[in-house]
Design a protein around this nucleic acid. Structure first.
Lengths: 205, 205
DNA sequence: TGAGTGACTATAATTCAATTTGGTCACTTG
DNA sequence: CAAGTGACCAAATTGAATTATAGTCACTCA
C-alpha cells in the first residue's frame, strides 16, 4: 500500500496561501510551454521571484507540483464529460455521449496542449494519485448513469450493478487512460460509436 | 519444388534454405536468452559458423529476423487460442474461452519468455507486419465464432455482423496487444470473465 | 517568530570521443 | 557460377567526465 491516500502531508504550507497559487500559475504556464521535464524548479522560483528553497515550503517535490497541474487538467476532462452528459434525458443517449466525450476530450487535450497532456501520460504511467482519482471519478459517473438507466427501465437489472459497471469501465479504460489512448488512436473515430452500441445492446432489458 | 535463382521480393535466398533455418534457430535461442537488442547479427553469424555478410543473403535486415521469430511467437499464441476453443460446442462458451485464452496466453509468454515477449512488444509498438497479421488472425477467429453463434441461434442477428465483430474486437484489443496488456495487467484476473459477460449480454438474441 | 535564502549534496542528465553494430560490396575460392 | 567472406562505412551505442537539477538545512533579518 502507498501513503498517497492516507493523511495530510500531501501539501505543505497553507492550502490557500497566495504563494502556492503563484506557483501553480507559473507551473501551468511553464509546463504548458516548455514541458514538465524541461522546466526546473529554479525556473518556477525565478518566475515568481522567490528562491527555489521557498518552493519546497509549499510543495513536497517537483512531482507534487506536476500532480497539481495534472489534476487541474484531468478535472477539465471530467468537466467536459459532465457537460456532454448534462441535460440529456435518455440514459442510453447519455452513455453514448459520455463515451464520445471521453475520447474527444482526451484527444483534444492531446493535440491542443500536448505538453500538459504529457504530464497526464506520466501520471497514468506511474499511477499518480491524480490519475487514479480521475479514473475513480469516471467510474462514479458511470455508476450514476447506470443507476439512472435502471430506474428509468432503459437498462436491464438482472446483472449485479457493480459487475456491469466494472465491465463497462474496462471497455472505457483504454480511452480514459492517456497512455493507451495514444496507442488506440487508430480506432478513435469509430470506437465510441461501436463500443457504445455494443454496451447498450448488453444493457437492453 | 524448384526455386528461382533471382531474389524474391519479400525474403532473400530460398525460403526453405537450410542456412535460413539455422539462422532462425540461432536467433530464437539468442533472442530468447539475451534479448533482441543485445544480440548482434555477428553473434548469430558466429553461432552458425558463417560470416555476418552471409546472413544478409537470407534476411533483409536484423528486424526481418526479429519478425520471423516474432511471428513464430504470435503463432503460438494463436495456437493456444485455437486449442482453447476447439472442441467446445456452445458458441457463448467458446467466446468465454477465447477471451480467457487471449489473456492467459499473452501473460504466460510475458512471464515465461520475457525476452521474446519484448520482441512482440516492439512489433506491436512499431506495427510490424507480424503484429498486424496476428491481430487480423484473431479478428478472423472472432468473426468465425460469431457466424457460428448466429447460425446456432445463440447470438442475435439484427446488428450487422461486421459491426458486432469490430466492436467486440475493440473490447479484446487491449488484451491482444502486448503493449496494452502490460498496462492493463491490474485487471487481467477479472477482465476476461467480466468482459465476456458483457459481450455475451450484448449478443443475446 | 516566521518568511525567505545561499550554500551544499547526492543523484540524474548531458556531453563527446571511442567503440560497436547494422548493413553493403567487391572480391575470392572451389 | 554459387557459396561465402574481409574490409569498409555511416549510424548507433557506450562510458567516463562534466554539468545541471531536485531537494535539504542551517541560517538571516525584519
Amino acid at each position: 500500500m502507498n501513503n498517497a491516500t492516507s493523511s495530510p502531508p500531501a501539501a505543505r504550507g497553507a492550502a490557500d496561501h497566495d504563494v502556492r497559487a503563484q506557483i501553480v500559475v507559473a507551473a501551468t504556464e511553464h509546463f504548458s510551454q516548455y514541458g514538465y521535464e524541461k522546466t526546473t524548479v529554479s525556473d518556477l522560483a525565478k518566475a515568481i521571484g522567490f528562491s527555489k528553497a521557498y518552493i519546497y515550503k509549499f510543495f513536497e517535490s517537483k512531482q507534487a507540483i506536476g500532480e497539481m497541474i495534472c489534476s487541474n487538467c484531468l478535472r477539465e476532462i471530467q468537466a467536459d464529460i459532465r457537460a456532454a452528459v448534462d441535460g440529456v434525458e435518455s440514459p442510453p443517449e447519455k452513455l453514448r455521449r459520455m463515451f464520445k466525450a471521453i475520447v474527444d476530450s482526451g484527444l483534444r487535450l492531446s493535440f491542443q496542449d500536448r505538453k500538459l497532456y504529457e504530464i497526464a501520460i506520466s501520471a497514468a504511467k506511474e499511477r499518480w494519485p491524480s490519475a487514479i482519482a480521475h479514473e475513480e471519478c469516471i467510474r462514479q459517473m458511470l455508476l450514476e448513469l447506470l443507476r439512472q438507466g435502471r430506474e428509468s427501465g432503459d437498462f436491464e437489472r438482472k446483472t449485479p450493478i457493480d459487475e456491469t459497471a466494472a465491465a463497462i469501465y474496462l471497455v472505457m479504460h483504454p480511452y480514459v487512460n492517456p497512455v493507451i489512448l495514444q496507442l488506440s488512436s487508430h480506432y478513435t473515430d469509430q470506437a465510441p460509436a461501436q463500443l457504445s452500441g455494443l454496451v447498450l445492446r448488453s444493457l437492453s432489458p
